[in-house]
Amino acid sequence: MSVVDWFILGVILVGLLVWAITGRVFYTLIYFALFSLGSFIYRLYDSQSFIDAFFSSFGLVDILILIIALAWFIDKLKKKRNQS
């Protein structure tokens, strides 16, 4: 794995840690949205075209949204169990 892969993995783990500590999916969504925006800006700064940067960041956003959706689903299951 390259340094960039380790960095992205670290950012995802920190995002999941934020969700675990706060217990709110909304904060995690904001965290990952800001990360995706930062990734997009970095790609533009790195001399990629607007379209390439957008689609590269969009792929990353898809992965992050899947992680958030899974976390949200787990959160809903926990709440449903506690109500029973």
Rank of each mutant, 00 (worst) to 15 (best):
M1Y: 12
M1D: 08
S2F: 04
S2Y: 08
V3C: 04
V4N: 12
V4L: 14
V4K: 14
V4R: 14
D5H: 13
D5Q: 14
F7D: 05
L9C: 07
L9R: 00
L9W: 08
G10S: 13
V11E: 08
I12H: 03
L13G: 08
V14N: 07
V14Q: 06
V14P: 05
L16D: 00
L17K: 04
V18G: 07
W19C: 03
A20R: 04
I21F: 12
G23C: 00
G23R: 02
R24Q: 09
V25I: 15
V25P: 00
V25W: 01
Y27V: 01
T28G: 14
L29Q: 06
L29F: 12
I30Q: 08
I30V: 11
I30F: 00
I30Y: 02
L34F: 15
S36D: 15
S36F: 10
L37A: 10
L37Y: 12
S39W: 13
F40P: 07
I41K: 00
I41R: 03
Y42V: 13
Y42R: 11
R43Y: 08
R43S: 03
L44R: 07
S47L: 08
Q48K: 13
Q48W: 15
F50D: 04
D52H: 04
A53Q: 08
F54I: 01
F54C: 04
S56N: 10
S56D: 12
S56C: 01
S57W: 04
G59I: 03
L60Y: 03
V61I: 14
V61R: 02
V61F: 15
D62Q: 12
D62T: 15
I65R: 05
I65K: 02
L66A: 15
I67Q: 06
I67E: 07
I67P: 06
A69Q: 03
L70T: 04
W72P: 00
F73G: 09
F73I: 03
F73H: 05
I74D: 01
D75S: 14
K76C: 07
L77E: 12
L77H: 06
K78W: 05
K79T: 05
K79F: 07
R81G: 03
R81D: 03
N82C: 01
N82T: 12
N82K: 15
N82Q: 15
Q83G: 11
Q83N: 12
S84I: 14
